[in-house]
Write a protein that binds this DNA or RNA. Structure first.
Length: 422
RNA sequence: GUGGGCGUAGCUCAGGUGGUAGAGCGCCAGAUUGUGGCUCUGGUGGCCGCGGGUUCAAGUCCCGUCGCUCACCCCA
């Protein structure tokens, strides 16, 4: 029989790695609380239509990367490729906007995209992200950026930059698309295939192209900043001004348009160093049009970002910022089988009820092997419990760190172990 | 979807020109008959990804296939 293997692009997160994940997740939650964000958990799958309409039919995600299947009732279901549309759906469905005008929500959860895996790209990957729903003010945009920066800083990351741009409101974009197309038209024959198609379907995405010949043409292309309406211009200026006031270093990137259809006004990315070809740690922006795309009657302003945890781990590994696993074991109880084993087993339970972490022998091995196991488990102490010890109520407690051993009354054990915690 | 690289012990990897497998680490045991880490000694462990072909003989050559990995498109 052939061994069954995991699905391409998925990962088993083993104990020494899950420890690192916990460290990151704890830090993320801590900073979220500081900024007044609350966790929201939405289902792992949604109606396909949510993403088709919310993210945009022409985006790469929807057109070729979604895990879509038909369930037994013939509904088209999709494993979520991102979480902004689901959060907005939940916000609308639960009338959170009626409860209060500002909802600040965050999530930490797996996403799914059927792409060919490579460094920093998986089919099941994990993101943390925030959605600030309600406010149209540029302060909200900046707050999300600062929040992201604080998480990276708290984790000790230094090798990264912030890129920012404005893609304007609907009117700005109509203006800009016209100017861009006018500029590109004479060069069209020299551009790559996809860009020629984008010229009609979604010209702003051409700015994303990394093809060399397209690139050289684009260096002289008009910039969207010059096509912004007064509102959009003012919004962007205020965002930049707030970033300056808060001493955030950033780069304006006129070619930053981002892949998803729902962005308006501010678009930004956190770019990491030393990550290989996939160097975006996270990205986000404002998306005032999304709510209406998925069926809301009134406009709902919102801004947020999503950040990849696998890429964050890669970046942190690069800078050696991740903690080593700490077993947290206080004591290993070594016994000699038979009655001593039963007594040790019961003692373990008593200690555990007293908030002490205990490891016991489950293989019936020799004392020597048990001591080796105790050492390997990372336990601070080993308690050696034989027949004599059970009779006298006193046992040998060995401090594995100091390599010192003393005899101790079993009744004093809890206090003795807790003492070393301080 | 496309292209490159790689599949040999639990892990990392050696194995000119074909002669049916090795190291380091790990694991187990002993030196120390009730004491870990260090040291020494010994041991366990492999349909050499899978299928076919060439050959007296294939880990090695040829064909196919699957898997992993990096990259392109794009994204986290």
């Amino acid at each position: 029989m052939k061994r069954i293997k995991r699905i391409k692009g998925t990962q088993d997160i083993l104990p020494e790695t899950s420890f690192k994940w916990q460290y990151i997740e704890n830090t993320v939650r801590k900073i979220m609380v500081r900024y007044g964000y609350h966790e929201i958990r939405t289902p792992m799958f949604e109606m396909t239509e949510l993403f088709a309409r919310g993210i945009g039919q022409l985006t790469d995600i929807v057109s070729k990367e979604m895990y879509t299947f038909t369930d037994r009732s013939k509904k088209s279901i999709t494993l979520r490729p991102e979480c902004t549309a689901p959060v907005m759906r939940a916000y609308l469905e639960n009338n959170l906007g009626e409860a209060r005008p500002v909802q600040k929500l965050y999530y930490i959860s797996p996403m799914f995209r059927q792409e060919n895996p490579q460094a920093g790209r998986l089919r099941q990957f994990h993101q943390f992200g925030v959605e600030c729903i309600g406010p149209s003010a540029p302060e909200a945009d900046v707050e999300t950026i600062l929040l992201g920066l604080d998480i990276y800083q708290e984790l000790g990351l230094t090798n990264f930059t912030v890129k920012i741009n404005s893609v304007g409101d609907a009117e700005s974009r109509i203006n800009y698309k016209a100017r861009l197309k006018e500029f590109l038209e004479p060069h069209l024959t020299r551009m790559c295939h996809t860009c020629q198609e984008r010229y009609d379907s979604n010209p702003m995405r051409i700015l994303d192209c990394k093809n060399e010949s397209c690139n050289s043409i684009l260096s002289d292309a008009p910039q969207i900043i010059d096509s912004l309406t007064t509102d959009a211009r003012e919004h962007f200026n205020k965002v930049l001004s707030l970033l300056d006031q808060n001493e955030v270093e950033y780069q304006i990137d006129h070619r930053l348009v981002r892949g998803l259809d729902y962005y308006t006004f501010t678009a930004y990315e956190f770019i990491g160093g030393g990550l290989g070809a996939q160097n975006a740690l996270g990205g986000g922006g404002r998306y005032d049009l999304l709510a209406e795309e998925i069926g809301s009657k009134k406009q709902t302003c919102a801004v947020g970002f999503a950040a990849g945890i696998e890429r964050l781990i890669m970046a942190m590994e690069e800078e050696n910022l991740l903690p080593q696993i700490n077993s947290g074991i206080d004591v290993f109880i070594a016994t000699f089988g038979g009655e001593t084993q039963d007594a040790g087993f019961k003692l373990a339970r008593t200690l555990r009820k007293n908030d002490i972490s205990v490891h016991t022998e489950l293989m019936g091995r020799s004392l020597k092997a048990q001591m080796r196991e105790a050492n390997r488990s990372g336990a601070r102490f080993a308690l050696i419990l034989g027949e004599e010890e059970i009779k006298t109520g006193r046992a040998a407690l060995k401090d594995l760190l100091q390599s010192e051993q003393k005899e101790i009354a079993l009744s004093d054990l809890v206090d003795e172990i807790l003492k070393t915690r301080e």
